[in-house]
């Protein structure tokens, strides 16, 4: 082999080694500091994210909030996962310091668990609603009345207690008289209420251990709504990142999948009045 070829190969290998040192080294450095700091600092507010490793689900309100924090000068290593379950896997394996997540999910993981603990919850309530296209205002009105009916006859409390153990819907809607459900709505498919969900968000929407049946609070809610509206419920499982695009394309009538009510979303879509309380919170390993 000619000399210059040898030199070129040596250079290439050196570049690769350099890149690896640079790319793999980043987290090992912070690792040393976190082990020292772990005993001293408990991450009990977003201000303490500084220099830590935080995982969030991408395209959620938690990741939006992280973006704002980072724009305001916070420096931390962000782990944007596609599924919230993977955030908790990583926390369990000690690869991240905290998970920034909706309180409904945090409740599921911290309840009866010696592994996770909730250290902080936001004062800003971020309740959830059912999301529809701007054009389906009639269906929205019908769903609104149906949710009120569920609150009126106590069904809501029943499914909340079944899924959370406590009534997370209490105090959000005070319905004193039986609402009338309008019937002049149309759906994408006649006689069917197509519901967009992102399965894999316990306890709101996930599957039984065999992976076949969808369960969770939102699933129960959708089935109750279908009964009241006289529609057959059909679930469309979508990735969270594409769930709003799917609604715009008309793949389903509504999203019942832990949609937090935010001003940006209200600008583009109809979101019903809150049906369940929620706020951002921080979960760390116990």
């Amino acid at each position: 082999m000619k000399d210059h070829a040898k030199r070129a190969i040596a250079l290439l290998l050196a570049i690769v080694m350099g890149t690896l040192l640079f790319a793999c080294g980043e987290s090992d450095e912070t690792n040393a500091t976190t082990i020292q700091a772990q005993d001293a600092i408990v991450i009990d507010s977003p201000a303490k994210f500084e220099g830590k490793k935080i995982s969030v689900q991408s395209a959620t309100t938690a990741s939006d909030s992280m973006e704002i924090l980072q724009a305001n000068g916070l420096t931390c290593q962000l782990f944007p996962y596609k599924k919230v379950t993977q955030c908790f896997d990583d926390l369990l394996l000690g690869r991240v310091d905290a998970v920034y997540v909706d309180s409904v999910v945090a409740g599921h993981y911290t309840k009866d668990s010696s592994k996770f603990v909730r250290t902080w919850i936001s004062d800003e309530a971020e309740p959830m609603g059912i999301c529809l296209q701007k054009s389906s205002d009639k269906l929205a009105a019908a769903i609104e009345a149906a949710i009120d009916t569920l609150n009126y006859n106590g069904k809501m409390e029943e499914i909340a207690k079944k899924n959370f153990g406590t009534d997370e819907t209490a105090g959000l809607r005070n319905v004193t008289e039986q609402p009338v459900i309008p019937t002049d709505f149309t759906t994408v498919k006649k006689g069917v209420l197509a519901v967009g969900v992102e399965i894999g968000y316990p306890p709101m929407e996930y599957t039984t251990d065999d992976g076949k049946t969808f369960i969770g609070f939102d699933i129960d809610l959708a089935n109750e709504l279908g009964d009241l509206l006289g529609l057959e419920v059909e679930f469309v499982n979508t990735s969270w990142e594409g769930i709003f695009a799917g609604l715009e394309k008309g793949q389903y009538d509504c999203i019942i999948s832990s949609v937090s009510i935010t001003p940006e979303r209200l600008e583009k879509y109809i979101i019903t009045e809150p049906y369940i309380a929620n706020a951002l919170c921080i979960v760390t390993a116990a």
Binding site: L20, A23, C24, G25, E26, S27, D28, N31, F79, Q86, D89, L93, G94, R95
Partner: peptide, 21 residues
């Protein structure tokens, strides 16, 4: 990245880049 560390903590690769590599 996920299964090996659950089997044995020895295989817990902290760096995402290293695991991908």
């Amino acid at each position: 990245y996920f299964t090996l560390p659950l089997i044995n903590p020895v295989f817990n690769i902290k760096s995402r880049f290293a695991a991908a590599w």
